[in-house]
């Protein structure tokens, strides 16, 4: 009985493999691009929501921040709380009513819908990631004179990114699968190919079998790459001691004045270590 299945799959593949491959490629591109844009949206929302603001700040700033927070709140709740398949229909068919123009390009609409949807989830992940950073990191940065933007860019966000990497991976894998709902507006993704092919030749199960395998390969490769990336972001687990003498003196990179005494500096009169 398996023999029949494999012949069917083989014949499907022989006849339609370019369509399946195009579908996979489209799914992949949409998922990658939309996840990246979604992350950017999420980071922007997360940063805007965590700008510190106290009763001592001026009224314009406070009102502005309040409005921004409300807008982000509404955005997150609406796009997290409705099905993406409906959002796609809503935006694609709603545009003519609101703006008098309709999108000609399915790609543009699809990328917008998936990005905006991902962004709504990422906004909360980023907010959580920022809140999980030790307040000492903010204080340390402020104490050396960094402003809020610098603190965020160089200290907090790199740590946040590392912490929410699993979340980003989650969203990416969800996107690989959920972009399949874009067939509703005619996006030619991997799943749309299944609908077309099985509709044409009535081989539902063999085509579904192929599709299952294809999606699994896409997500397994993604999982593997994400793990690698997480490891890289975590940094090296070892470090090498640097020989101070060669690095700082003989190599000539060390040119800062050395007039002050230090108990750790062997050329100093205050040196506390063992005398040569």
């Amino acid at each position: 009985m398996f023999a029949q299945l494999f012949t069917d799959i083989a014949s499907l593949w022989a006849k339609y493999h370019t369509m399946y491959l195009t579908g996979i490629l489209n799914t992949l591109i949409l998922a990658v691009v939309a996840t990246l844009i979604g992350c950017v949206i999420g980071f922007i929302c997360g940063i805007l929501q965590t700008i510190p603001c106290g009763p001592k700040d001026n009224i314009v700033k406070r009102v502005l921040l309040k409005i921004i927070r409300i807008i982000i709140r509404i955005y997150v709740e609406v796009f997290r709380g409705t099905p993406m398949i409906l959002q796609a229909v809503f935006i694609y068919y709603g545009m003519p009513y609101f703006f008098g123009v309709s999108f000609k390009d399915i790609w543009t609409v699809s990328i917008i819908v998936v990005s905006v949807n991902t962004g709504a989830y990422m906004a909360e992940s980023v907010r959580g990631g920022i809140m999980s950073i030790d307040p000492g990191q903010f204080e340390g940065a402020r104490a050396i004179g960094m402003n809020h933007l610098q603190t965020m860019l160089y200290i907090v966000l790199p740590q946040t990114l590392r912490n929410i990497m699993p979340q980003i991976g989650n969203n990416y894998i969800i996107n690989v699968k959920d972009t399949s709902v874009m067939f509703i507006i005619g996006f030619n993704d991997f799943f749309a190919v299944h609908k077309m092919v099985s509709g044409a030749v009535f081989k539902y199960f063999p085509s579904a079998f192929l599709e299952m395998g294809g999606y699994l390969i896409l997500t397994l490769v993604a999982s593997f790459l994400l793990r690698k990336m997480e490891k890289r972001l975590a940094g090296k687990s070892n470090y090498e001691l640097v020989n101070t003498d060669t690095l700082t003196m003989s190599a000539g990179t060390y040119s800062y004045p050395r007039d002050a005494a230090s108990p750790f500096d062997e050329t100093s009169k205050d040196y506390k270590g063992e005398k040569a």
């Binding site: 470090y239 101070t244 990179t253 750790f264």
Partner: peptide, 24 residues
């Protein structure tokens, strides 16, 4: 900035550890 950082790290006896991360 690097020279200055090395100067002060040397002053506190931490110059050999420049490649380490704080949790190490």
């Amino acid at each position: 900035a690097k020279n200055r950082a090395l100067y002060y790290l040397n002053k506190v006896g931490m110059a050999p550890y420049i490649n380490a991360r704080p949790d190490q």
